[in-house]
Design a protein around this nucleic acid. Sequence first.
DNA 1: AACGCGGGGAG
DNA 2: CTCCCAGCGTT
Length: 359
Amino acid sequence: MQPITTKLVKWYDSHHRILPWRISPSDRFHGQIPDPYRIWLSEIMLQQTTVEAVKPYFNNFTRKWPTVASLAAASQDDVLRAWAGLGYYSRARNLKKCADIVSNDYDGRFPSDVTALKALPGIGDYTAAAIASIAFDIPVAVVDGNVERVITRLYAITPALPLAKPVIRTAMQELTPSKHPGDFAQAMMDLGATICTPKRPACVICPVNDNCQALKTSDPELFPVKSPKKEKPIRIGAAFVAVSPGNEVFLQSRVETGLLGGMAQVPTTAWTARTDGDTQIEAAPFAGQWAAVGSITHVFTHFELRLSVYKANSVSTSSGADGWWVKVENLHGEALPTVMKKAIAAAIPDAFAKRRKLE
DNA sequence: AACGCGGGGAG
DNA sequence: CTCCCAGCGTT
């Protein structure tokens, strides 16, 4: 029987996904070399984010900024505006920091060893291993959510994550070949994404089903074991959409760190634990004829937010608050996270309606 | 080790 | 609805 590694690499040769940042095994054979900048950019975007969500952002970024030097030359605001909607905005801030360091201290060339990569902002264990492996052919264990699932099933590893992480890493390291480690890492991830899925895995067509202890002795769907997660609290607040006579909306910048750091927002109250019967309308940023126009709900990673939305028309643009005014038709160019687009859309239903999605 | 940190797609 | 996705940084 062929080893697991051989089976997976053969499977990958014919069943790999076609992705904008990927060099196929065949193209690789014919001499194409991966661009570390594109590998890095894709890996940062893919952190906790699905391939389909990343594709349009990756294409847009590489069109605007084809090299790490061009990204370093951009402003953080430009980067945040292009990142808006993708989530986890500290990634965008670290992306810009990392581009600056590579451009200034490394002469525009990414380092190839794991330790130097991990020292860069936004690059941790997984991403360092992925870049070293895929872009530089370094045989290091690449462990993401897909690999955790495939490995725990192959070896029926019962301790819960994250306790099982060292065992998984060791097993992955032993499977990783010295020859084309990047293709093997991507083979494992493609297997996890397309066959060894979290629910209803397609074990019948899996190239390594003969090697799978979970399939042999248990149920693959029971792996990996994970520690229980806690429930999300609810927070409430109010958002204020001020509209000027010239059809402009008032925006502010959020503080640089923490939730939605550095992104744009309409003025809001603080977001507090749920209380009863408090309209909070007195917290409006301007004097004006504020009218309730509805409410929105938005789910963040660790809490659910319910915002009452208020709108005022004919607000003077000379009102003194710290921020800026943007014409409604230009809102799409701002660094607005999804929750703020929802709030604005509650007050101005067609604010984002005619905008095509990125492609 | 636990927590803060977005958004969306699949089942 | 729930789960989880090519995780990282801080505490």
